[in-house]
Design a protein around this nucleic acid. Structure first.
Lengths: 135, 135
DNA sequence: GTGCGTGCAAACCGTTTGCAATCGG
DNA sequence: CCGATTGCAAACGGTTTGCACGCAC
């Protein structure tokens, strides 16, 4: 017998607001940054809800949760595989449109200490424009 | 007048033990893993001391502190720039000896949104031998 | 009415830090 | 001696979670 479908997602006010605010940011924001922005527009939404909604959207594949070295997770509205550059001074994140042959890279790395290499993470570090000008 | 040199490092028992234990591990251990190993040999050393000594050794350039995506910091006895592969199942880390032209990579990535790109982080993800066999 | 979603606060977890006691040189 | 180093425990910071209430459907 089929498992009863009780998983319908509800269309709550909080979900709409978090979505709208997130889409209005183009910073690859962290959950905390989205929470801050949500507060200004709608001070009633709790931190936990913002964290939950972003994580949920990422699980559903609607947005992408980025793992970065030395920074909190960020959320990205762009879905495909691409790379990022992180400002080492202020933590700003930007996309890097760079063709990288992942397959060739992982092939070349294959075989070390019996590891099966499946994927790779390429991330750039640098200075954003405003931090460059401040130094 | 010259600032008095009061920065002499002392040769403590704790320092020797942490160093010896760390050198006996070849796992790219985290500070916590070194602490565990230290406990077995010398249960008196505190967690804070192990964390401090490892961080200090890294600051002095004696060992390398690795930042990884989705894992705690690890310490590496190998000093030069090289890459790593992380097991997505158990978190094990191994070196990857792969020639990568960082300069060419960062050059190709240059100029995005006004960023000055200085460096890049390349990390592989996969399965270690024992995790591969367990699946 | 049912049960998913929310708010709150506490837990979490690895790491760092303030401070008094201790020990190396 | 004296200040670098240690141990302890508490703080930290971003994130997650347990639970009771409330709202979407």
């Amino acid at each position: 017998m089929a498992t009863k479908e009780t998983n319908q997602k509800r269309n709550t006010l909080q979900k709409r607001i978090v979505h709208d605010v997130f889409c209005s940011l183009h910073n690859h924001p962290s959950a905390g940054m989205v929470y801050e922005a949500v507060q200004e527009k709608f001070p009633g939404i709790s931190r936990a809800t913002v964290y939950r909604l972003l994580a949920e959207a990422a699980e559903e594949g609607k947005i992408q949760r980025l793992k970065l070295v030395d920074a909190n997770d960020r959320y990205d509205i762009t879905l495909g595989t691409h790379h990022h550059v992180v400002c080492r001074s202020c933590g700003a994140v930007a996309d890097v449109n760079l063709e990288v042959d992942h397959e060739r890279l992982t092939d070349k790395a294959e075989g070390h200490e019996g590891f099966l290499i499946e994927d790779c993470h390429l991330e750039f570090v640098g200075l954003c424009e405003s931090c460059r000008n401040q130094i």
